[in-house]
Design a protein around this nucleic acid. Structure first.
Lengths: 255, 255
DNA sequence: CGTCAAGAAAGTGTCGACACTATTGCGTTC
DNA sequence: GAACGCAATAGTGTCGACACTTTCTTGACG
């Protein structure tokens, strides 16, 4: 069997240098983070069946924490579970992504409205301060940094809505679209417009211009979507790169 | 042997009558459903620590499926996980509930707008047909039935938005507030208004009156919230009722 | 009497093993 | 040589066991 697979490039050290049977801190949590990263980076490919034993060996743990992680990832929509057949990587169509962005837009716009209604002045000022603290040199950051700061900005809006459920939802959505956002950011197609948009949104928040801010947000996100669609095509192309056979597709008997 | 504690009133038969070592169909799934029901019905009380071994014995399975179920329930917000200390039943404050309803309102209103924009005429007609098929005798149904039909109605709106993510979100939210909705429905405080509201919403959908329908929905849900707050108080009262001793859960040998 | 420490008990986190199910591969039949 | 079993293989679902951590108990000390 070939398959000294491409997964081994994971930076997680399989086993710590400790001869005794000392268990590592929290296998389940580490497994969760690692697998999620694999999914996010397309190391595990859409539609692919996930082999638990294989993964367990790669991460140097037993199947138990792997399964716990996969269960969590399943309820978060990263993978799906078919009884007696195992976990499969969620398929990622363009549609699916658009749906997610639409959901994100809904959540964020609603959050902004609530922010305008409810947030204290000093909270809004914290938003302003946060953004102005990172706006300088925003473009020059590495992609991961930009991504984190952008997510932070939008999450802060959700927080200022005063509804923690909105924060949770947005965080979950972010996690699911992060991989493609990173790709998109690396393209750097519309950097400045993003910076401007954030500033404009802050301004709208300060004057508590609910409808104006919502419109800005909507456009901001919509702009991202169209840029993202192109990025997605590139990504998919890269994933299913012609070099790889990648064809042991699972067919259950077609009736 | 069996301690016959209060959990055993769960209808789940611990072990199937099969002499051979045949495993039951899907322990994990059954555990998930059972535990969720326990949570929904306050058999497991807010803030309470969940004892895995105990639960495992009660359901007649090992801890593995229990833990898988709990992990799922954790990502769905039913329970929380503290490392090395285990799972705890999510505390349920009135605020938390209001936040959830607010989220629900956001999702549903957005779904209705999308429905007005995108749904085909025959889809909307299916909504109308579904509602008119159950509107007769709606009041006379048992609470569980009403609940299911009401959820079905609202889910259908989400489906007609064309965005499956909205359906997922709404379904998840429904699961989390179901327990209190049932209690509220048993109170039967505003039956007719609910029936009327649904009919009015259908009418708005038919004439694709986006804003009108949204307003109806918002009011409909808001009405539910206020009715629910009272129901919640009753429920909490019942849970922590002084009448029931109910305190030998994990009180091992009182000295 | 309160408080603190050490030991006991209870409980979680992970493991390796094994039963059961799905899939693959091979030989047989038409 | 395609379709159909049927055995071999691979992989998931669940279990009981045990190491490690937290919580409770007990008893010495102030």
């Amino acid at each position: 069997m070939n398959k000294k697979n491409e997964l081994s490039m994971v930076e997680e050290t399989p086993v710590e240098g400790d001869t005794e049977t000392r268990r590592s801190a929290d296998s389940s949590e580490r497994a969760y983070n690692t697998i999620r990263k694999l999914l996010v980076e397309f190391k595990l490919k859409p539609e692919e069946r996930i082999n638990e034993v294989h993964l367990a060996k790669t991460l140097g743990v037993s199947r138990t924490p792997i399964r716990e992680a996969l269960n969590r990832l399943a309820s978060e929509g990263f993978v799906s579970l078919t009884p007696n057949r195992g976990f499969f990587v969620r398929s990622l169509s363009t549609e699916g992504l658009i749906d997610l962005y639409e959901l994100r837009s809904i959540i964020e716009c609603a959050a902004f409205r609530l922010l305008c209604e409810r947030a204290e002045d000093d909270q809004i000022d914290r938003l302003r301060a946060y953004w102005s603290s990172i706006v300088d040199g925003y473009r020059e950051q590495p992609a991961d940094m930009i991504l984190a700061e952008d997510e932070g900005f939008h999450l802060m809006i959700a927080e200022l809505s005063g509804n923690p459920e909105l924060v949770n939802q947005l965080a979950a959505i972010n996690a699911r679209i992060r991989f493609i956002r990173r790709i998109q950011i690396e393209h750097r197609t519309h950097d400045m417009s993003q910076v401007d948009a954030h500033s404009a949104i802050v301004a709208a928040a300060i004057r508590r211009d609910s409808e104006g801010g919502v419109e800005l947000l909507r456009q901001h996100i919509e702009l991202t979507v169209s840029a993202t669609q192109q990025a997605l095509k590139d990504a998919l192309l890269r994933v299913y790169s012609p070099g790889e056979p990648n064809e042991r597709r699972h067919r259950r008997r077609a009736s």
